[in-house]
Design a protein around this nucleic acid. Structure first.
Lengths: 341, 341
DNA sequence: CTGAAAGCGCTAACAC
DNA sequence: GTGTTAGCGCTTTCAG
């Protein structure tokens, strides 16, 4: 699709100008040890004079590495790409990669054409590894990548027996703890706004809700559970409205995400209910710690910065060791009391 | 940062298995003409059998092209990355690239470290060209890229005398037309919610507003203009609230973006004003044509799909011709009457 | 139509 | 410490 600008200086020209061999220039460029200081400076001067920039294709070819990592979002509904959750993941992974020479490449995979193109790109050696977010239960992309021998790490898993390396939070435990907290606080009618139940993460959070109720001897009536079609605020509003119509006596809600919780809050306020005195709402907060707390309610904190770090760490392990061993990390969640429930 | 998986089949092995020369395999892989059909099939069989995938680094090195295009967002406030406008741009550019062999790479540049890393990446030949969005007035990244001889196209411009190739919409004309329409509809007190005025796009839209009022002999009182700190819905709400406090008699508003307009609408409704009968609101709609119209009001349509296509087209021109000639495209906007104002 | 050969610019192993 | 050398896997003439 193009022609490269001509006349870019090469390693060889730098070496000639500095009066040294190519190997030495390579060492200087890569900050390798074992070069006399005076030599190093001479090379650096030549580099500056020529405006030399290493050719990354050549480096990849010779060095068998790309110094790039892809973060892929496979989401047919590309609008969701704008959701705060994804923004936060991008940010967290970006942070986790700062001390690394790797360039972070975001990629949107919306169709099979794009899926194919990306696999070729990745298998072609343009990235050292792939990070996946928002993988749906039936998506085969993780398998394609893993089978091709590419270091691959997913955020979340597709099912209870995920076969690709992943990092996840303890969703079941988090939900269980939140509901237990609500029960301890004396709440009796606790509803649930779940995420789409074709996603494992939503199933886990619902399971935690049920387990807590059951082990307390309380009933988890089916009518107390409403499934939102996605994790957006709008869906949360809609689900909460439906729930409230069925159960006006509701005095607490567990929402399956922070955005769903935000929507639920809006719906409650619109219905004239006082939050949290009248109805306690707990969501899962995926957000960055320095973010202003909105909604200012008790939440199950998902350690997204830690998840980012864990993903990068697992990826590096996969890149170093071979044959690739399957592994996973499940991070503990934490109940953060921001407001009396 | 890694080791590449071993044992990947090469062109040479494919050639050996198919009993042909490397050149022939290359031709087949690249769909080049001039290969006998039987030969082509034999090669394809060998490719399938070996599971051959071209090494993209080698291809780049030999072919002087990367088959990749970067779409960069330089935004210190990375949260804005989730705004619908950017989501739409990504989508539009993605669409414009589908008929091309190029992989789209999104990149977030949040700091100078990341800026430097990206420039090295781009200058290193990993992309054929760079598309920039959300460039702030003082950002030097476009110049760094352009000076390095990289095909570069910006969405919008940093000032009236932009020196880097860009695509923009006719913001001034669009705003002018919208206000003229409001005047023709009999509105008399027309306010403006502008974007941050350190961005050229916001200046243009404000200028259009002023021009229309002036040429109609109406006064554009300074108190009728409120500057929002960014283009988000929250800021629109805040600005509208301030505007309404100053001018309760307000009967129309031009908002500098669709999200600002959405925020303004919320504020108006919260204040008990009827929209659009009482107060007409016009925003700039950057959205995709098949998007449900929300807010369902008259808007200045920004042809984002066309902008995406134009950016890709200009980029291709820059990639083909050299030396790089500076150029730009300004697309016409269109007033879409969705509701009586 | 097809094979052979010359690099693309760099890294890494090996001598000196 | 530093220079030399042998590739990395592909595209692209150039013969035939």
């Amino acid at each position: 699709m193009s022609r490269q600008r001509p006349g870019t200086p090469t390693l060889e020209e730098v070496a000639a100008l500095a009066g040294v061999g190519r190997g030495t220039v390579s060492r200087v460029v890569n900050n390798a040890a074992g070069v006399r200081d005076s030599t190093r400076r001479a090379v650096q001067r030549a580099i500056a004079e020529l405006g030399y920039v290493p050719n990354l294709a050549a480096r990849s070819l010779a060095g068998h590495r790309a110094d790039a990592v892809a973060l892929v979002m496979t989401e047919p509904d590309w609008r969701l790409f704008g959701e705060p959750f994804f923004t936060e993941v991008v940010h967290a992974v970006g942070d986790a990669l700062t001390d690394t020479p790797a360039q972070l490449l975001l990629t949107l995979v919306r169709s099979d054409t794009e899926r194919r193109r990306f696999v070729e790109y990745a298998r072609g050696g343009r990235v050292d590894g792939v990070l996946l977010m928002s993988v749906h239960a039936k998506d085969r992309l993780p398998d394609m990548l893993a089978e091709a021998g590419l270091p691959t790490v997913m955020l979340g898993r597709r099912s209870g027996e995920e076969s690709v390396t992943y990092v996840d939070a303890d969703n079941t435990g988090g939900a269980r703890g939140a509901v237990r907290y609500l029960l301890d606080a004396g709440r009796s009618t606790i509803g649930a706004v779940t995420g789409p139940l074709d996603m494992y993460v939503a199933q886990c959070r619902l399971r935690g809700y049920r387990e807590a109720l059951e082990s307390a001897g309380a009933a988890a009536g089916a009518s107390l559970v409403v499934e939102a079609s996605d994790f957006t605020e709008v869906s949360g509003h809609r689900a909460m409205t439906a729930l409230l119509a069925r159960h006006p006596e509701l005095d607490a809600v567990l929402a399956a995400s922070d955005t769903l919780a935000a929507g639920a809050l809006n719906a409650l306020r619109a219905a004239g209910r006082r939050v949290p005195q009248d109805v306690a709402v707990i969501g899962f907060d995926d957000f960055h710690p320095d973010r202003p707390t909105d909604p200012p309610l008790t939440t199950v904190r998902q350690p997204l910065q830690e998840i980012g770090r864990a993903m990068v760490r697992l990826l590096q392990e996969e890149m170093e060791e071979s044959p690739v061993a399957w592994r996973h990390v499940i991070l503990r969640t934490e109940l953060v009391i921001r407001d009396s429930a």
